[in-house]
Simulated assay, not measured.
Amino acid sequence: MADTKQVQAAVYRGDNGDRLSVETLGLAAPQHGEVRVAVRAAGVCGSDRHVLDGEWQVQLPAVMGHEAAGVVEAVGPGVRGLGIGDHVVIAWHQACQRCGECTSGKPWACTRAKSNDSLLPDGTTRWSEADGSAAFPYLATGAMAEAIVVPEFAAIKIDERVPFDVASLIGCSVGTGYGAVVNNARVVAGEAAVVVGAGGVGLSIISALRLAGATPIIAVDVSEAKLREARRAGATHAMMSGADLGERIAEATDGGADVAFEAIGRVQTMQQLPELIRPGGRAVFVGLPPEGQKVEIDGLLLAYDGKTIIGSNYGGLVPARDFPRVASAYLSGALPLDELISARVRLDDVNEAFDAMRRGERTRSVILFDA
């Protein structure tokens, strides 16, 4: 079709282990209320790895990736707030904009969103294979591609001074970490905080805690290298994980942290999190575990100590509000995000980037596309 663009994309078919293939697919023109974005940078996120490693199930074939930033290159009918050339960050959770959750400022809680089904809000996909069969954008984004089509409200305009590699991370890891601190935990200056897991999301949480004025900020990991990165991001203390972690946290915080974040998605560390906070404290689950795994918590102790467990879905973000705030904090120097990126790669290197993630060698890889 004349209005279909041929696009290079990283495709997961599920028939070659955890490998992605870079292929040419068709991308239809944006429809009513949609825009096409030329992707300039796409983050390599653990949520994608869950799919590739068989821990989460998605529609196949899937165009992978969900952290993206780029430039609007085409607009569909009815688009009013964006124009060609605008720099945008993509929100992967594409809420319906009409339900009670959306209209009360909680789009992350929208139950009508089709993002987890890898479909646009109208229940369709703009991607197609050579034979005309459908392909599906992971989390309604499919960011690991030269171009994508998303609803106008999912493309958030930001200051053009923000580099695309940094901007891409605002759409998920940085935004999630920032939102977990500001929106979910509502950390205030002087509170003691613990972050378990110093990967991309964990470092984003640490950066946001520094911005909020938390002290001390204790990073926990099994990697000395990642703990060094955590100190660069703003951690005041760095601790190796272990059976006596609760005792060490209690000693460093005079009885336990006010708030603790789990940024891995590992059941064992999620279960340990309430032990790290003082009575009345908050434990925030940010990391996402494989499907079907259960977390066991001592309900009596939880109630007796008045502790709160908070589930953080996309950091409780309101993208149109929070993405520009994060961008502004970065430009002011209050939120140094460049240090979160440990590797910049090309699309053809995507499998290597995921392998490095599995080995725990990088905080965040970002795929860069030619301008």
Rank of each mutant, 00 (worst) to 15 (best):
residue 4 T to L: 06
residue 5 K to Y: 14
residue 12 Y to S: 01
residue 13 R to L: 03
residue 20 L to T: 01
residue 26 G to N: 11
residue 32 H to G: 12
residue 36 R to V: 05
residue 37 V to L: 13
residue 40 R to T: 03
residue 40 R to Y: 11
residue 40 R to S: 07
residue 45 C to Y: 05
residue 46 G to I: 03
residue 49 R to A: 14
residue 52 L to M: 06
residue 61 P to E: 01
residue 63 V to K: 12
residue 72 V to P: 13
residue 74 A to P: 13
residue 75 V to M: 08
residue 76 G to D: 01
residue 80 R to G: 11
residue 85 G to D: 05
residue 85 G to R: 15
residue 86 D to G: 10
residue 90 I to S: 00
residue 94 Q to T: 01
residue 95 A to N: 15
residue 95 A to F: 14
residue 107 P to S: 11
residue 110 C to F: 08
residue 111 T to A: 14
residue 117 D to S: 13
residue 121 P to H: 03
residue 125 T to L: 03
residue 130 A to Y: 07
residue 142 G to K: 11
residue 143 A to N: 11
residue 144 M to D: 08
residue 145 A to S: 11
residue 149 V to N: 12
residue 150 V to P: 05
residue 152 E to S: 12
residue 156 I to G: 08
residue 157 K to S: 12
residue 160 E to K: 08
residue 162 V to Q: 00
residue 163 P to I: 02
residue 171 G to I: 02
residue 175 G to L: 05
residue 184 N to G: 10
residue 187 V to K: 02
residue 189 A to W: 07
residue 194 V to H: 07
residue 198 A to E: 10
residue 199 G to R: 15
residue 199 G to I: 08
residue 202 G to E: 09
residue 205 I to A: 09
residue 208 A to H: 04
residue 212 A to P: 07
residue 212 A to G: 03
residue 213 G to F: 00
residue 214 A to V: 00
residue 216 P to W: 10
residue 221 D to M: 04
residue 223 S to L: 02
residue 233 A to W: 02
residue 235 A to D: 12
residue 237 H to C: 08
residue 238 A to H: 10
residue 239 M to I: 11
residue 243 A to N: 14
residue 244 D to M: 10
residue 250 A to M: 09
residue 253 T to L: 10
residue 259 V to M: 03
residue 259 V to L: 04
residue 262 E to L: 00
residue 267 V to G: 03
residue 269 T to R: 15
residue 273 L to A: 04
residue 278 R to I: 01
residue 279 P to L: 02
residue 281 G to T: 01
residue 284 V to S: 05
residue 287 G to S: 03
residue 291 E to C: 07
residue 292 G to Y: 14
residue 298 D to M: 13
residue 301 L to D: 14
residue 301 L to C: 09
residue 305 D to A: 15
residue 305 D to S: 10
residue 311 G to H: 04
residue 317 L to A: 03
residue 320 A to L: 11
residue 329 A to F: 00
residue 333 G to L: 09
residue 335 L to T: 06
residue 337 L to P: 03
residue 341 I to E: 01
residue 342 S to P: 02
residue 345 V to M: 07
residue 346 R to I: 00
residue 349 D to P: 08
residue 356 A to L: 13
residue 356 A to S: 10
residue 357 M to H: 09
residue 361 E to C: 01
